[in-house]
Design a protein around this nucleic acid. Structure first.
Lengths: 229, 229
DNA sequence: TAAGGTCTGGACAATATGTCCGAACAACAT
DNA sequence: ATGTTGTTCGGACATATTGTCCAGACCTTA
Protein backbone atom coordinates (compact mmCIF):
# COMPACT_ATOMS: atom_id res chain seq x y z
CA UNK A 1 0.00 0.00 0.00
CA UNK A 2 2.23 2.79 -1.20
CA UNK A 3 -0.57 5.28 -1.51
CA UNK A 4 0.29 7.27 1.61
CA UNK A 5 3.95 7.97 1.25
CA UNK A 6 5.52 11.28 2.20
CA UNK A 7 6.78 11.87 -1.28
CA UNK A 8 3.37 11.72 -2.87
CA UNK A 9 2.05 14.17 -0.31
CA UNK A 10 4.72 16.77 -0.93
CA UNK A 11 4.43 16.60 -4.67
CA UNK A 12 0.71 16.86 -4.36
CA UNK A 13 1.03 19.97 -2.20
CA UNK A 14 3.45 21.44 -4.69
CA UNK A 15 1.10 20.69 -7.55
CA UNK A 16 -1.73 22.26 -5.63
CA UNK A 17 0.31 25.38 -5.05
CA UNK A 18 1.21 25.60 -8.71
CA UNK A 19 -2.36 25.23 -9.86
CA UNK A 20 -3.49 27.75 -7.27
CA UNK A 21 -1.02 30.29 -8.63
CA UNK A 22 -2.16 29.70 -12.19
CA UNK A 23 -5.82 29.94 -11.25
CA UNK A 24 -5.40 33.06 -9.15
CA UNK A 25 -3.62 34.69 -12.05
CA UNK A 26 -6.73 34.05 -14.14
CA UNK A 27 -9.01 35.28 -11.37
CA UNK A 28 -7.01 38.48 -11.15
CA UNK A 29 -7.16 39.02 -14.89
CA UNK A 30 -10.89 38.45 -15.12
CA UNK A 31 -11.43 40.64 -12.09
CA UNK A 32 -9.45 43.41 -13.75
CA UNK A 33 -11.75 43.06 -16.75
CA UNK A 34 -14.68 43.88 -14.55
CA UNK A 35 -16.13 40.44 -13.86
CA UNK A 36 -17.05 39.66 -10.29
CA UNK A 37 -15.69 36.63 -8.48
CA UNK A 38 -19.13 35.49 -7.43
CA UNK A 39 -20.24 35.30 -11.05
CA UNK A 40 -17.16 33.44 -12.30
CA UNK A 41 -17.97 29.81 -12.96
CA UNK A 42 -15.44 27.11 -12.22
CA UNK A 43 -15.66 26.13 -15.88
CA UNK A 44 -14.62 29.62 -16.92
CA UNK A 45 -11.66 29.59 -14.54
CA UNK A 46 -10.24 26.21 -15.46
CA UNK A 47 -10.62 26.67 -19.19
CA UNK A 48 -8.71 29.95 -19.01
CA UNK A 49 -6.08 28.36 -16.80
CA UNK A 50 -5.74 25.35 -19.07
CA UNK A 51 -6.89 22.48 -16.92
CA UNK A 52 -10.03 20.40 -16.68
CA UNK A 53 -12.84 20.88 -14.26
CA UNK A 54 -12.28 17.36 -12.93
CA UNK A 55 -8.71 18.18 -12.06
CA UNK A 56 -9.80 21.33 -10.30
CA UNK A 57 -11.99 19.34 -7.93
CA UNK A 58 -9.14 16.95 -7.23
CA UNK A 59 -7.13 19.75 -5.65
CA UNK A 60 -9.71 22.21 -4.40
CA UNK A 61 -12.98 21.95 -2.54
CA UNK A 62 -14.47 24.86 -4.42
CA UNK A 63 -13.75 28.39 -5.61
CA UNK A 64 -13.54 29.69 -2.07
CA UNK A 65 -10.85 27.17 -1.18
CA UNK A 66 -8.63 28.95 -3.68
CA UNK A 67 -9.05 32.26 -1.92
CA UNK A 68 -8.92 31.18 1.69
CA UNK A 69 -5.63 29.40 1.03
CA UNK A 70 -4.23 32.55 -0.55
CA UNK A 71 -5.54 34.69 2.27
CA UNK A 72 -3.77 32.52 4.81
CA UNK A 73 -0.50 33.14 3.04
CA UNK A 74 -0.99 36.84 2.62
CA UNK A 75 -2.19 37.75 6.10
CA UNK A 76 1.15 37.45 7.84
CA UNK A 77 2.90 39.11 4.93
CA UNK A 78 0.89 42.29 5.11
CA UNK A 79 0.93 42.22 8.90
CA UNK A 80 4.66 42.81 8.72
CA UNK A 81 4.11 46.03 6.83
CA UNK A 82 2.59 47.59 9.94
CA UNK A 83 5.76 47.12 11.98
CA UNK A 84 7.25 50.37 10.73
CA UNK A 85 4.15 52.19 11.88
CA UNK A 86 3.88 50.55 15.28
CA UNK A 87 7.58 51.19 15.92
CA UNK A 88 6.89 54.94 16.02
CA UNK A 89 7.28 56.49 19.42
CA UNK A 90 7.43 59.78 21.33
CA UNK A 91 9.68 61.51 18.82
CA UNK A 92 7.46 60.71 15.84
CA UNK A 93 6.53 63.46 13.42
CA UNK A 94 3.59 63.70 11.07
CA UNK A 95 5.95 62.88 8.22
CA UNK A 96 7.07 59.70 9.98
CA UNK A 97 3.45 58.64 10.16
CA UNK A 98 2.96 59.54 6.52
CA UNK A 99 5.92 57.40 5.49
CA UNK A 100 4.86 54.47 7.63
CA UNK A 101 1.32 54.49 6.29
CA UNK A 102 2.55 54.86 2.72
CA UNK A 103 4.50 51.68 3.33
CA UNK A 104 1.39 49.89 4.56
CA UNK A 105 -0.56 51.08 1.54
CA UNK A 106 2.20 49.95 -0.82
CA UNK A 107 2.21 46.50 0.76
CA UNK A 108 -1.51 46.10 0.27
CA UNK A 109 -1.68 47.69 -3.16
CA UNK A 110 -0.60 44.66 -5.26
CA UNK A 111 -3.32 42.57 -3.63
CA UNK A 112 -6.30 44.87 -3.89
CA UNK A 113 -7.92 43.02 -6.77
CA UNK A 114 -7.73 39.62 -5.10
CA UNK A 115 -8.78 41.15 -1.79
CA UNK A 116 -11.87 42.44 -3.54
CA UNK A 117 -12.59 38.85 -4.55
CA UNK A 118 -12.03 37.74 -0.97
CA UNK A 119 -14.58 40.23 0.28
CA UNK A 120 -17.00 39.04 -2.40
CA UNK A 121 -16.56 35.42 -1.44
CA UNK A 122 -16.76 36.10 2.28
CA UNK A 123 -20.41 36.90 1.68
CA UNK A 124 -21.24 33.23 1.21
CA UNK A 125 -18.15 31.11 1.86
CA UNK A 126 -17.68 30.34 5.58
CA UNK A 127 -14.01 29.51 5.30
CA UNK A 128 -13.24 32.76 3.50
CA UNK A 129 -15.33 34.65 6.01
CA UNK A 130 -13.30 33.10 8.77
CA UNK A 131 -10.09 34.20 7.09
CA UNK A 132 -11.33 37.76 6.80
CA UNK A 133 -12.37 37.79 10.43
CA UNK A 134 -8.94 36.55 11.44
CA UNK A 135 -7.25 39.22 9.38
CA UNK A 136 -9.35 41.95 10.95
CA UNK A 137 -8.73 40.58 14.42
CA UNK A 138 -5.01 40.68 13.82
CA UNK A 139 -5.13 44.22 12.54
CA UNK A 140 -7.26 45.37 15.43
CA UNK A 141 -5.07 43.60 17.96
CA UNK A 142 -1.91 45.16 16.55
CA UNK A 143 -3.35 48.65 16.50
CA UNK A 144 -4.91 48.28 19.94
CA UNK A 145 -1.55 47.26 21.35
CA UNK A 146 0.12 50.25 19.70
CA UNK A 147 -2.49 52.60 21.15
CA UNK A 148 -2.16 51.13 24.65
CA UNK A 149 1.62 51.31 24.63
CA UNK A 150 1.52 54.80 23.14
CA UNK A 151 -0.78 55.94 25.91
CA UNK A 152 1.56 54.51 28.54
CA UNK A 153 4.53 56.23 26.89
CA UNK A 154 2.58 59.44 26.45
CA UNK A 155 2.59 59.87 22.69
CA UNK A 156 -1.01 58.75 22.02
CA UNK A 157 -4.09 60.66 23.12
CA UNK A 158 -4.90 59.17 26.58
CA UNK A 159 -8.66 59.64 26.22
CA UNK A 160 -9.00 57.16 23.34
CA UNK A 161 -10.54 53.75 23.98
CA UNK A 162 -7.91 51.38 22.58
CA UNK A 163 -10.15 48.52 21.46
CA UNK A 164 -12.95 50.53 19.90
CA UNK A 165 -10.72 53.13 18.30
CA UNK A 166 -8.64 50.35 16.79
CA UNK A 167 -11.79 48.73 15.41
CA UNK A 168 -13.00 51.87 13.64
CA UNK A 169 -9.56 52.66 12.26
CA UNK A 170 -8.98 49.09 11.11
CA UNK A 171 -12.23 49.08 9.14
CA UNK A 172 -11.38 52.46 7.69
CA UNK A 173 -8.05 51.09 6.52
CA UNK A 174 -9.51 47.89 5.11
CA UNK A 175 -12.27 49.59 3.15
CA UNK A 176 -10.23 52.62 2.21
CA UNK A 177 -7.35 50.64 0.85
CA UNK A 178 -9.42 48.16 -1.07
CA UNK A 179 -11.99 50.60 -2.41
CA UNK A 180 -10.13 53.90 -2.73
CA UNK A 181 -6.54 52.89 -3.36
CA UNK A 182 -7.47 50.25 -5.90
CA UNK A 183 -8.61 52.76 -8.49
CA UNK A 184 -6.18 55.57 -7.64
CA UNK A 185 -3.01 56.42 -9.53
CA UNK A 186 -0.18 58.93 -9.20
CA UNK A 187 -1.16 62.23 -7.69
CA UNK A 188 -4.54 60.99 -6.53
CA UNK A 189 -2.82 58.16 -4.67
CA UNK A 190 -0.55 60.66 -2.94
CA UNK A 191 -3.53 62.70 -1.85
CA UNK A 192 -5.25 59.64 -0.44
CA UNK A 193 -2.19 58.69 1.59
CA UNK A 194 -1.94 62.30 2.78
CA UNK A 195 -5.51 62.25 3.98
CA UNK A 196 -5.02 58.85 5.62
CA UNK A 197 -1.91 60.11 7.41
CA UNK A 198 -3.69 63.26 8.58
CA UNK A 199 -6.58 61.29 10.02
CA UNK A 200 -4.28 58.93 11.91
CA UNK A 201 -1.97 61.72 13.02
CA UNK A 202 -4.78 63.95 14.23
CA UNK A 203 -6.60 61.10 15.93
CA UNK A 204 -3.79 59.36 17.75
CA UNK A 205 -0.77 61.61 18.10
CA UNK A 206 -1.63 65.25 17.50
CA UNK A 207 -3.57 65.84 20.74
CA UNK A 208 -0.43 65.14 22.79
CA UNK A 209 2.49 65.59 20.41
CA UNK A 210 1.35 68.73 18.58
CA UNK A 211 0.30 70.27 21.88
CA UNK A 212 3.73 69.70 23.37
CA UNK A 213 5.49 71.15 20.34
CA UNK A 214 3.15 74.05 19.78
CA UNK A 215 5.51 76.55 21.35
CA UNK A 216 8.36 75.69 18.98
CA UNK A 217 6.35 76.40 15.83
CA UNK A 218 7.32 73.11 14.12
CA UNK A 219 4.63 70.64 13.18
CA UNK A 220 6.80 68.03 11.49
CA UNK A 221 5.17 68.63 8.14
CA UNK A 222 7.12 68.97 4.91
CA UNK A 223 4.47 68.41 2.26
CA UNK A 224 0.80 68.76 1.42
CA UNK A 225 0.28 71.95 3.40
CA UNK A 226 -2.16 73.05 0.76
CA UNK A 227 -5.27 74.64 2.09
CA UNK A 228 -8.72 74.15 0.66
CA UNK A 229 -10.25 76.93 -1.45
CA UNK B 1 -57.38 48.53 -24.42
CA UNK B 2 -58.00 49.04 -20.75
CA UNK B 3 -54.74 47.45 -19.74
CA UNK B 4 -52.89 50.72 -19.17
CA UNK B 5 -55.17 52.69 -16.93
CA UNK B 6 -53.93 54.87 -14.10
CA UNK B 7 -55.83 52.92 -11.53
CA UNK B 8 -54.25 49.60 -12.40
CA UNK B 9 -50.82 51.15 -12.20
CA UNK B 10 -51.30 52.61 -8.75
CA UNK B 11 -52.78 49.44 -7.31
CA UNK B 12 -49.98 47.49 -8.88
CA UNK B 13 -47.40 49.80 -7.32
CA UNK B 14 -49.14 49.47 -3.99
CA UNK B 15 -49.21 45.71 -4.27
CA UNK B 16 -45.55 45.71 -5.17
CA UNK B 17 -44.75 47.81 -2.12
CA UNK B 18 -46.74 45.50 0.12
CA UNK B 19 -45.06 42.39 -1.20
CA UNK B 20 -41.69 44.05 -0.91
CA UNK B 21 -42.31 44.81 2.74
CA UNK B 22 -43.40 41.24 3.43
CA UNK B 23 -40.42 39.81 1.61
CA UNK B 24 -37.90 42.10 3.26
CA UNK B 25 -39.29 41.10 6.62
CA UNK B 26 -38.48 37.51 5.73
CA UNK B 27 -35.04 38.45 4.44
CA UNK B 28 -34.33 40.22 7.69
CA UNK B 29 -35.45 37.26 9.75
CA UNK B 30 -33.40 34.74 7.80
CA UNK B 31 -30.43 37.08 7.88
CA UNK B 32 -30.74 37.32 11.64
CA UNK B 33 -30.67 33.52 11.76
CA UNK B 34 -27.30 33.59 10.11
CA UNK B 35 -28.15 32.82 6.50
CA UNK B 36 -26.52 34.95 3.86
CA UNK B 37 -28.54 36.83 1.28
CA UNK B 38 -26.51 35.43 -1.58
CA UNK B 39 -27.40 31.90 -0.55
CA UNK B 40 -31.11 32.55 -0.08
CA UNK B 41 -33.06 31.08 -2.98
CA UNK B 42 -36.11 32.86 -4.30
CA UNK B 43 -38.10 29.74 -3.50
CA UNK B 44 -37.07 29.98 0.14
CA UNK B 45 -38.07 33.63 0.31
CA UNK B 46 -41.49 33.34 -1.28
CA UNK B 47 -42.50 30.24 0.61
CA UNK B 48 -41.69 31.95 3.91
CA UNK B 49 -43.51 35.09 2.79
CA UNK B 50 -46.56 33.12 1.63
CA UNK B 51 -46.66 33.78 -2.10
CA UNK B 52 -45.75 31.82 -5.17
CA UNK B 53 -42.56 32.09 -7.11
CA UNK B 54 -44.55 33.03 -10.20
CA UNK B 55 -46.04 35.99 -8.42
CA UNK B 56 -42.63 37.08 -7.25
CA UNK B 57 -41.41 37.37 -10.82
CA UNK B 58 -44.50 39.32 -11.77
CA UNK B 59 -43.49 42.13 -9.43
CA UNK B 60 -39.71 41.87 -9.21
CA UNK B 61 -36.92 41.34 -11.67
CA UNK B 62 -34.92 39.31 -9.20
CA UNK B 63 -33.71 39.25 -5.61
CA UNK B 64 -31.57 42.32 -6.13
CA UNK B 65 -34.55 44.33 -7.33
CA UNK B 66 -35.98 43.92 -3.86
CA UNK B 67 -32.93 45.46 -2.26
CA UNK B 68 -32.19 48.26 -4.70
CA UNK B 69 -35.76 49.50 -4.37
CA UNK B 70 -35.41 49.50 -0.60
CA UNK B 71 -32.05 51.18 -0.78
CA UNK B 72 -33.50 53.98 -2.88
CA UNK B 73 -36.05 54.65 -0.16
CA UNK B 74 -33.61 54.50 2.68
CA UNK B 75 -30.80 56.62 1.25
CA UNK B 76 -32.51 59.96 1.63
CA UNK B 77 -33.91 58.95 5.00
CA UNK B 78 -30.51 58.30 6.54
CA UNK B 79 -29.00 61.29 4.75
CA UNK B 80 -31.23 63.48 6.88
CA UNK B 81 -29.68 62.09 10.02
CA UNK B 82 -26.40 63.79 9.16
CA UNK B 83 -27.96 67.28 9.19
CA UNK B 84 -27.50 67.62 12.92
CA UNK B 85 -23.82 66.85 12.50
CA UNK B 86 -23.21 69.14 9.55
CA UNK B 87 -25.02 71.98 11.32
CA UNK B 88 -22.23 72.12 13.91
CA UNK B 89 -20.12 75.21 13.73
CA UNK B 90 -17.41 77.23 15.48
CA UNK B 91 -18.92 76.86 18.92
CA UNK B 92 -19.18 73.08 18.72
CA UNK B 93 -17.90 70.97 21.60
CA UNK B 94 -16.77 67.38 21.64
CA UNK B 95 -20.04 66.48 23.31
CA UNK B 96 -22.01 68.12 20.50
CA UNK B 97 -20.14 65.93 18.05
CA UNK B 98 -20.78 62.91 20.23
CA UNK B 99 -24.52 63.61 20.28
CA UNK B 100 -24.70 64.25 16.54
CA UNK B 101 -22.87 61.05 15.69
CA UNK B 102 -24.96 59.08 18.15
CA UNK B 103 -27.96 60.31 16.21
CA UNK B 104 -26.46 59.14 12.93
CA UNK B 105 -25.69 55.75 14.41
CA UNK B 106 -29.21 55.44 15.78
CA UNK B 107 -30.67 56.22 12.36
CA UNK B 108 -28.61 53.53 10.72
CA UNK B 109 -28.96 50.96 13.45
CA UNK B 110 -32.40 49.55 12.51
CA UNK B 111 -31.18 48.92 8.98
CA UNK B 112 -27.88 47.21 9.62
CA UNK B 113 -29.11 43.72 8.82
CA UNK B 114 -30.62 44.71 5.49
CA UNK B 115 -27.60 46.84 4.72
CA UNK B 116 -25.47 43.75 5.18
CA UNK B 117 -27.62 42.07 2.54
CA UNK B 118 -27.18 45.08 0.27
CA UNK B 119 -23.41 44.83 0.56
CA UNK B 120 -23.65 41.11 -0.18
CA UNK B 121 -25.77 41.66 -3.26
CA UNK B 122 -23.67 44.54 -4.52
CA UNK B 123 -20.97 41.96 -5.21
CA UNK B 124 -22.89 40.61 -8.18
CA UNK B 125 -25.98 42.73 -8.80
CA UNK B 126 -25.20 45.83 -10.90
CA UNK B 127 -28.28 47.74 -9.85
CA UNK B 128 -27.55 47.21 -6.16
CA UNK B 129 -23.94 48.15 -6.73
CA UNK B 130 -25.08 51.35 -8.35
CA UNK B 131 -27.26 52.12 -5.36
CA UNK B 132 -24.38 51.59 -2.97
CA UNK B 133 -22.13 53.82 -5.06
CA UNK B 134 -24.76 56.52 -5.04
CA UNK B 135 -25.14 56.28 -1.27
CA UNK B 136 -21.40 56.56 -0.77
CA UNK B 137 -21.19 59.50 -3.17
CA UNK B 138 -23.87 61.29 -1.24
CA UNK B 139 -22.17 60.67 2.06
CA UNK B 140 -18.82 61.79 0.74
CA UNK B 141 -20.30 64.89 -0.89
CA UNK B 142 -22.07 65.91 2.32
CA UNK B 143 -19.01 65.43 4.46
CA UNK B 144 -16.73 67.11 1.93
CA UNK B 145 -19.00 70.15 1.90
CA UNK B 146 -18.99 70.26 5.69
CA UNK B 147 -15.20 70.11 5.76
CA UNK B 148 -14.85 72.86 3.14
CA UNK B 149 -17.27 75.18 4.89
CA UNK B 150 -15.72 74.42 8.25
CA UNK B 151 -12.32 75.31 6.92
CA UNK B 152 -13.63 78.60 5.58
CA UNK B 153 -15.27 79.35 8.91
CA UNK B 154 -12.20 78.24 10.80
CA UNK B 155 -13.52 75.34 12.89
CA UNK B 156 -12.09 72.50 10.81
CA UNK B 157 -8.40 71.72 10.47
CA UNK B 158 -7.32 73.71 7.39
CA UNK B 159 -4.65 71.23 6.32
CA UNK B 160 -7.15 68.43 5.56
CA UNK B 161 -7.91 67.56 1.95
CA UNK B 162 -11.72 67.75 1.88
CA UNK B 163 -12.43 65.14 -0.79
CA UNK B 164 -9.97 62.48 0.30
CA UNK B 165 -10.56 62.92 4.01
CA UNK B 166 -14.30 62.64 3.40
CA UNK B 167 -13.75 59.44 1.45
CA UNK B 168 -11.78 57.73 4.21
CA UNK B 169 -14.17 58.84 6.91
CA UNK B 170 -17.22 57.82 4.89
CA UNK B 171 -15.88 54.29 4.43
CA UNK B 172 -15.01 54.12 8.09
CA UNK B 173 -18.56 55.08 8.97
CA UNK B 174 -20.12 52.65 6.51
CA UNK B 175 -18.07 49.67 7.58
CA UNK B 176 -17.97 50.60 11.23
CA UNK B 177 -21.69 51.04 11.52
CA UNK B 178 -22.63 47.91 9.60
CA UNK B 179 -19.98 45.64 11.03
CA UNK B 180 -19.34 46.94 14.53
CA UNK B 181 -22.64 48.52 15.55
CA UNK B 182 -24.69 45.61 14.26
CA UNK B 183 -23.49 43.23 16.94
CA UNK B 184 -23.05 45.73 19.76
CA UNK B 185 -25.46 46.31 22.63
CA UNK B 186 -25.68 48.63 25.62
CA UNK B 187 -22.38 49.64 27.10
CA UNK B 188 -20.37 48.32 24.18
CA UNK B 189 -22.48 50.45 21.84
CA UNK B 190 -21.74 53.51 23.96
CA UNK B 191 -18.04 52.82 23.79
CA UNK B 192 -18.16 52.48 20.02
CA UNK B 193 -19.93 55.80 19.65
CA UNK B 194 -17.41 57.35 22.03
CA UNK B 195 -14.53 56.10 19.92
CA UNK B 196 -16.24 57.25 16.72
CA UNK B 197 -16.81 60.70 18.19
CA UNK B 198 -13.20 60.95 19.37
CA UNK B 199 -11.86 60.06 15.93
CA UNK B 200 -14.05 62.62 14.20
CA UNK B 201 -13.43 65.27 16.85
CA UNK B 202 -9.68 64.78 16.83
CA UNK B 203 -9.46 64.62 13.07
CA UNK B 204 -11.64 67.56 12.06
CA UNK B 205 -12.15 69.95 14.92
CA UNK B 206 -9.59 69.45 17.70
CA UNK B 207 -6.58 70.86 15.84
CA UNK B 208 -8.26 74.28 15.66
CA UNK B 209 -10.94 74.26 18.35
CA UNK B 210 -9.04 72.54 21.17
CA UNK B 211 -6.00 74.69 20.41
CA UNK B 212 -8.04 77.89 20.72
CA UNK B 213 -9.61 76.78 23.99
CA UNK B 214 -6.50 75.27 25.58
CA UNK B 215 -5.92 78.31 27.78
CA UNK B 216 -9.37 78.08 29.39
CA UNK B 217 -8.95 74.51 30.59
CA UNK B 218 -12.30 73.29 29.23
CA UNK B 219 -12.39 70.59 26.57
CA UNK B 220 -16.13 70.22 26.20
CA UNK B 221 -16.08 66.68 27.51
CA UNK B 222 -18.54 65.40 30.09
CA UNK B 223 -18.20 61.64 29.77
CA UNK B 224 -15.86 58.82 28.90
CA UNK B 225 -12.76 60.49 30.28
CA UNK B 226 -11.54 57.09 31.30
CA UNK B 227 -7.92 56.49 30.62
CA UNK B 228 -6.46 53.22 29.47
CA UNK B 229 -4.52 51.06 31.91
C1' DT C 1 -73.04 36.31 -16.41
C1' DA C 2 -69.15 38.13 -18.57
C1' DA C 3 -64.70 40.53 -18.40
C1' DG C 4 -60.54 42.03 -16.12
C1' DG C 5 -57.28 41.31 -13.08
C1' DT C 6 -54.59 38.46 -10.03
C1' DC C 7 -52.49 34.29 -8.03
C1' DT C 8 -51.03 29.62 -8.45
C1' DG C 9 -48.74 25.23 -9.60
C1' DG C 10 -46.29 23.21 -12.87
C1' DA C 11 -43.50 22.78 -16.94
C1' DC C 12 -39.54 24.44 -19.32
C1' DA C 13 -34.68 25.53 -20.93
C1' DA C 14 -30.51 27.10 -19.31
C1' DT C 15 -26.73 27.14 -16.11
C1' DA C 16 -23.84 25.70 -12.26
C1' DT C 17 -22.32 22.62 -8.81
C1' DG C 18 -19.92 18.66 -6.98
C1' DT C 19 -19.19 13.65 -7.72
C1' DC C 20 -17.85 9.76 -10.17
C1' DC C 21 -15.92 6.82 -13.70
C1' DG C 22 -13.23 4.82 -17.53
C1' DA C 23 -9.68 5.78 -20.77
C1' DA C 24 -5.28 7.68 -21.88
C1' DC C 25 -0.77 8.63 -20.68
C1' DA C 26 3.72 8.98 -18.48
C1' DA C 27 7.14 7.56 -14.97
C1' DC C 28 9.17 4.05 -12.81
C1' DA C 29 10.41 -0.41 -10.72
C1' DT C 30 10.82 -5.17 -11.33
C1' DA D 1 9.05 -5.78 -21.51
C1' DT D 2 5.56 -5.51 -18.21
C1' DG D 3 2.91 -4.14 -14.59
C1' DT D 4 2.05 -0.62 -11.03
C1' DT D 5 1.08 4.05 -9.72
C1' DG D 6 -0.36 8.61 -10.19
C1' DT D 7 -2.22 12.30 -12.98
C1' DT D 8 -5.26 14.27 -16.21
C1' DC D 9 -9.08 14.30 -19.14
C1' DG D 10 -13.79 14.23 -21.09
C1' DG D 11 -18.02 13.11 -20.11
C1' DA D 12 -21.98 11.48 -17.56
C1' DC D 13 -24.76 12.17 -13.58
C1' DA D 14 -27.93 14.00 -9.93
C1' DT D 15 -29.12 18.20 -7.97
C1' DA D 16 -30.23 22.96 -7.44
C1' DT D 17 -31.44 27.49 -9.02
C1' DT D 18 -32.89 30.88 -12.24
C1' DG D 19 -36.14 33.27 -15.14
C1' DT D 20 -40.00 32.51 -18.46
C1' DC D 21 -44.34 30.89 -19.77
C1' DC D 22 -48.98 29.14 -19.57
C1' DA D 23 -53.48 27.26 -18.29
C1' DG D 24 -56.62 27.03 -14.75
C1' DA D 25 -58.70 28.87 -10.48
C1' DC D 26 -60.42 32.66 -8.16
C1' DC D 27 -62.47 37.27 -7.11
C1' DT D 28 -64.41 41.61 -8.02
C1' DT D 29 -67.06 44.67 -10.65
C1' DA D 30 -69.97 46.03 -14.56
Amino acid sequence: MPSVTRKSQTTRAARRAELRARLLEVVERLLAQGESFTEMSVERLVSEAGLSRSTFYVYFEDKGDLLSAWLGDIISQVAESTQQWYALSTDATRDDVRRALAHVVESYAPHTTLMAAVIDASAYDPSVREGVAEMMNRNVAGLRHHIREGQKAGFVDPKLLPQETAEWLAWMAERGIHQLIRTAKGKQLERLVDAYADIVWNTLYAPVLDAGRAAKGSDGRTRSSKRAA
